[in-house]
């Protein structure tokens, strides 16, 4: 049994322009110690999927329109809010994209760390402070004993993100949801943060879902990858076969359109723009941009097994 098993998740938003099917039937599973890359462009539903797992989507305008999220066998969508709160930051932790806004500006870093420890581990006073210093040291903040009482604005972006990770790690979570944790950071800082997340999975057996648009990051960190497009997973594979022989035309298009540091081949861009989620086509969402499109694609979404590997594409299955 996997630690996290998401089955046919639907998350919708009701807006004045119509219902946005941000997540439209997503299934995947992640095991302890495993890092799953969840790749997609803006509007693909990758971040909403991640937020849905912790039930952090505001309802309304959001709505969990169906599916199950089994965490250690328990369906989080049915778990009462009071019990979920004991999971958040404890058994399941989250890191957000923007390190500038995700720390409370009017609380010392030490307080923000000890708060989590108090809440979930019952640690107080000196013990909590000591643990906070240990955590900062673990994430590579220099001179943690002196810096622990700093204010968030005294830290740079990279250091704040490391504090966020320290908070996330405070309770040794079983599952870490990372939403573009390095997008706002410089590449040399990104390398530090990614190492940290890898160590966490390896040493504590934490399962990680790494949401990102950067294929390079996924290649470096993930064990397996799910590619999202238009609210659905279009391809699911272990990391090596995904990059060596991508099956879905969107994945192939994405890989052919990213410039690489180690070569200078022609870029073949994916035509057109990402889909409008209020008016998804009845068939495959990628059909309007697909180089291999044929009649069947426009009529019916391609079949895709719940947890099988491969691509959601008629061509691939023919």
């Amino acid at each position: 049994m996997s630690l996290l098993r998401v089955e046919d998740l639907h998350t919708h938003f009701h807006t004045e322009y119509g219902t946005v099917k941000a997540v439209n039937g997503v299934s995947f599973e992640v095991d302890r110690g495993e890092i799953m890359g969840l790749v997609g462009e803006s509007g693909s539903g990758k971040s909403v999927t991640n937020l849905s797992i912790l039930k952090l989507i505001p309802t309304p305008p959001g709505e969990y329109a169906g599916g199950r999220i089994l965490f250690d066998g328990e369906d989080l969508l049915k778990t009462p809010e009071s019990k979920l709160r004991t999971y958040r930051g404890n058994r399941i932790a989250m890191i957000f994209q923007d390190p500038m806004t995700s720390l409370t500006p009017y609380m010392r870093v030490s307080r923000q760390l000890t708060e989590v420890l108090e809440l979930h581990q019952g640690m107080t006073g000196r013990a909590a402070k000591k643990r906070a210093i240990e955590l900062l040291e673990m994430v590579g903040i220099p001179d943690p004993a002196n810096r622990v009482d700093s204010w968030p604005h005294e830290f740079s972006g990279g250091m704040r993100q490391r504090v966020m990770i320290a908070i996330a790690l405070a309770c040794k979570p079983e599952l870490l949801l990372a939403d573009e944790p390095t997008t706002a950071l410089d590449v040399t800082i990104q390398a530090q943060i990614l190492e940290l997340i890898k160590d966490l999975a390896r040493e504590h057996g934490t399962a990680v879902i790494m949401v990102t648009h950067d294929l390079g990051v996924v290649a470096g960190i993930a064990d397996k990858v799910s590619v999202m497009y238009g609210g659905r997973i279009v391809e699911r594979a272990p990391v090596e076969p995904l990059f060596a022989s991508p099956k879905h035309p969107y994945t192939r298009g994405l890989l052919a359109s990213v410039p690489r540091l180690d070569s200078r081949g022609e870029l073949t861009p994916v035509k057109g723009s990402p889909p409008d989620l209020t008016a998804l086509p009845p068939g495959c969402a990628f059909a309007p941009r697909c180089p291999l499109v044929h009649d069947q694609c426009a009529q019916q979404p391609p079949w895709f097994g719940e947890h099988t590997l491969g691509a959601r594409c008629w061509k691939e299955q023919a």
Binding site: G216, G220, R260, D262
Partner: peptide, 15 residues
Amino acid sequence: QALVSAIPVPDPVIE
């Protein structure tokens, strides 16, 4: 050198 080495390449085998 540090900058070049930090940039991820979309290829898990090379990475």
